[in-house]
């Protein structure tokens, strides 16, 4: 029923001489010969990295300079090749971000293990870990491929924040404290 017979036309004489196909193929090649190269001279010229590129995972700060990661360790848990190792730490009570309570003491991503899957970015509840535009990782020793916390923040920089979740929470708590104690 579902068999469809594809009609196979015998080749015409022109097709059997190969010549029309060769000519059209040559034209295609010529078009590429005169076209501008698609590649770039790499180390001097860098390709333009499109938005949303999944490069090296990095940690980011919010516009107030607060480190966004709260060391919930979800990314450590989800990371398929176990590239992430987090040592959670407390935020001292006198810091302006004391209301966030937790921040990583140490945060290491082993770039020899990372597979650039982006699951860490996907899972992070704080939008703290981002795969950004760094695509070239090189070094002479294994140790150089383990990005520590300082390095991760250097690479990550600051990203805009749409929510200021913790500040809102703090403001709401303060509001409630003001009104709720009547």
């Amino acid at each position: 029923m579902s068999v469809i017979k594809v009609p196979r036309k015998p080749l015409t004489f022109a097709e059997r001489t190969y010549i029309p196909q060769i000519v059209s193929g040559m034209m295609t090649t010529l078009k590429h010969i005169v076209a501008k190269p698609l590649t770039v001279n790499y180390p001097e010229e860098r390709p333009e990295i499109p938005a949303g590129y999944r490069g090296v995972p990095t940690l980011v700060r919010d516009p107030n300079g607060r480190e966004k990661c709260v060391s919930c360790q979800l990314c450590e848990f989800v990371c398929p090749p176990k590239a992430i190792r987090i040592t959670p730490g407390e935020i001292p009570a006198d810091s302006p971000a004391a209301h966030v309570e937790k921040a990583p003491k140490e945060f290491e991503i082993n770039m020899l293990r990372c597979i650039y899957c982006g699951l860490c970015q996907e899972v992070c509840p704080e939008e703290a870990i981002w795969l950004q535009n760094v695509f070239s990782v090189s070094g002479y020793e294994r140790g150089e491929f383990i990005n520590n916390k300082q390095k991760l923040y250097e690479l990550g920089g600051t990203l805009p924040d749409a929510h200021y979740k913790w500040d809102k929470k703090k403001a709401a708590a303060e509001e409630a404290a003001l009104h709720g104690q009547h």
């Binding site: 090649t29 590429h32 010969i33 076209a35 190269p37 698609l38 590649t39 001279n41």
Partner: peptide
């Protein structure tokens, strides 16, 4: 060089 141009590369340079 021609190979490179046909493949949209700059070639050895």
């Amino acid at each position: 060089k021609v190979a490179a141009w046909a493949q949209d590369r700059p070639g050895p340079n």
